[in-house]
Design a protein around this nucleic acid. Structure first.
Length: 118
DNA sequence: GGCATGACAAAGG
DNA sequence: CCCTTTGCCATGC
């Protein structure tokens, strides 16, 4: 994927985020897995790359994007300034945190409609 | 134009 | 289960 395509990639990320209902969460990789992009890259490696790009996209997302519903694959909130606030938002939506600050993905994970089949 | 860093994740120890 | 390594590349100095 070339920098030129980043903009459209980000738009897809935002679109998926907006489809997450209150009280549910998704992982960075989960979002990445919904976005297929024409590439010659090894798909196995590509998914991990995209997961990183999802984080970049959310760094400066529009106000109507529920960025707080995106967590990492371990069910935890990724460390960064403001992460305490994210936990508060999720708890307000009824999401319970485990002892080590982890969310039960089995129960809260949201599976969005794939934008393109894989 | 190198070099370090990062809202990631899988695999290995 | 926790910690480290590895793949990868956009970004900022």
């Amino acid at each position: 994927m070339r920098p030129k395509d980043r903009s459209s990639f980000n738009q897809l990320v935002f679109e998926i985020c907006r489809s997450i209902p209150s009280g549910r969460v998704i992982t960075y990789g989960g979002i990445a897995a919904c976005i297929e992009h024409p590439t010659n890259m090894d798909p196995f490696a590509y998914d991990r790359i995209k997961a990183r790009w999802v984080g970049y996209a959310l760094k400066d997302c529009p106000d109507d994007v529920p960025w707080h519903r995106v967590i990492n694959a371990r069910g935890q909130i990724s460390a960064r300034p403001g992460c305490e606030f994210q936990r508060t938002l999720l708890e307000d939506e009824g999401i319970a945190f485990g002892k080590s600050g982890r969310i039960n993905l089995k129960h809260y994970n949201w599976n969005p409609m794939p934008l393109k089949s894989r």
